[in-house]
Write a protein that binds this DNA or RNA. Sequence first.
DNA 1: CCGACGGGTGTTATCGCTAACATCATCGGT
DNA 2: ACCGATGATGTTAGCGATAACACCCGTCGG
Lengths: 337, 337
Amino acid sequence: MEQKTTRDPAMTDVARLAGVSHQTVSRVLNNHPNVREQTRLRVQAAIKELDYRPNRAARALVTGKTQLIGVVAQNSTLYGPASLLSAFEEAAGEAGFAVSVGRVKVLDRESIAAAVERHRDQRVAGIVVIAPNSSAADALADVPAGVPLVTVDGDPDRPTPLVTVDQAAGAFDATSHLLEAGHQTVWHVSGPADWFDAAGRVQGWRRALEAVGAEVPPVVTADWSAASGYRAGQMLARMPEVTAVFCSNDHLALGLLRALSERGRRVPHDVSVVGFDDVPEAAYFIPPLTTVRPDFAAVARETLGLLLEQVSDGETTRPRRTIAPALVPRESVAPPS
Amino acid sequence: MEQKTTRDPAMTDVARLAGVSHQTVSRVLNNHPNVREQTRLRVQAAIKELDYRPNRAARALVTGKTQLIGVVAQNSTLYGPASLLSAFEEAAGEAGFAVSVGRVKVLDRESIAAAVERHRDQRVAGIVVIAPNSSAADALADVPAGVPLVTVDGDPDRPTPLVTVDQAAGAFDATSHLLEAGHQTVWHVSGPADWFDAAGRVQGWRRALEAVGAEVPPVVTADWSAASGYRAGQMLARMPEVTAVFCSNDHLALGLLRALSERGRRVPHDVSVVGFDDVPEAAYFIPPLTTVRPDFAAVARETLGLLLEQVSDGETTRPRRTIAPALVPRESVAPPS
DNA sequence: CCGACGGGTGTTATCGCTAACATCATCGGT
DNA sequence: ACCGATGATGTTAGCGATAACACCCGTCGG
């Protein structure tokens, strides 16, 4: 019978085994230069033998810094946010940071403030807030300066460090693609008006139309769901002059496709459709959906970079980064018949 | 000009302001009974005034326990895993635990072991591993006993505490639903063979067929993607005797629907289809997809419960929990024509 | 009237680490 | 051969909390 609960080995245990002081062990661990090679090896052997792992709590206590990044994100399984989060965790992990996610049910000021507080309680090194609408952006006013903070998809008009996909450019490309196919104009089914993503896409769409002097039809506002895309589609399907639609995301496009199909309007023969996000299934919609693909991995990398800059330097030089998305042509676009 | 970087207030600061010892502050914070009401109020006022927040690192150092739960999950944006994770974070947050997610690119032994190590380095209170295939389950053999561990969707044949959706029951219901509609038999497009989820669904499907003495067609094995569902569909669409298909998830079903549509086989008139997962878009497939909905929130709750039991008691009474999913009838099922 | 009891509080040690300083060889320059 | 610089190491003092124990003071039973 062995001992029930032996204490985890601590630095002094390693020191004793290696025949040095605990401080020397600390130096080895932190790659201090002034350690003899031979000593270093002895210490490393002892570490390995004991399966020693440094106690982060102790280290955090004395240094006043943690290796934790807090992320505030909406509790959603939307493809965009989920991909972003996943990419960010990976990037942070590679940089030696753990990520603690504070999900929030609704993006209102109160919930976000609470999530930020929870992270501050944990004394995270920095906080990333995915703040895609205005109420979320408002909440950030409450965050005390001094906490390194980066917003993703946040308010372009605020001075906070911000990383975002270039929504307008993506929308511009999507719309131009439809115009170049020969359509007189392009209709737009938008996401919720208070989302910056949605607003940026509306802007890009409008600019593309204006650039060629095309008529600008009224925006059809929806939420991000397939259900609301379906409702929008029921309406648009009845209007014979609608030959091209740019949807603010792929799920809306999916709902739209079904509504068009139910009304007997064929895609792309009668109506051309473009989405946004390039969800993995978009290639298997009926028909395969032409869409715009944001580079979430790039957004994650930039976000992490911006945050770590703040953590180490206190300030940032270039506090605003924009990632250009790419058009992915498939089969949902054709010239008008 | 105020001071540049004032140190965060510590317990002694609160104590001084309230005119008590730091230990009394600690007692107030931890709801110890032996504190006079009046003292408690004075301390609480001081806490509030200083915006004091306890230093978790210091607490963790002395107690040897963190309020952190580590989750190992695949780096994927599949709907099921993403929902589960999201639900788990919420449940853990309510119980006062932060969640640190260690994403893993592939579910092989090495990556999982590494992710588990990272969590042990952080001295998490417990670890949850979403281990849906056999290589992942194998990796758990390396985890030393003594670390509270719960697997989700793991190997039913292992003794580890396990929470899982009752895949077989869901598949049984789905298949029976098709048989009851009058189909002679039901074909099955399965997920990867080494995934327990997929295996359970195959089992349930087979049992439902055998229960009514229906012929058991060969399993069509795919991965979880719409692309592979499409390929399976191209094959099945050519076989006129196929009138009912149960797909192992909704994305497979989406690909299948497109292949059927391309070949001119109408759903549900010519072929009935059932999926699994109930992704939010399933109601907007063409046609709306009949599917099986697992209760991810319930899985998350059970998982957390099981883990916390182990954390506090060291052991568990009922180390295995199964959550029954529900059939969601929509329009992709009809009697054979 | 006194000692035991127990609620309310303070004092001290301790967790495992890093920072700062102290110590002691070794070594090159004059 | 002496001296200061430098490298390698050890010693000591905290970081901010909890645990364990000590202490004071009323109350109550004998």
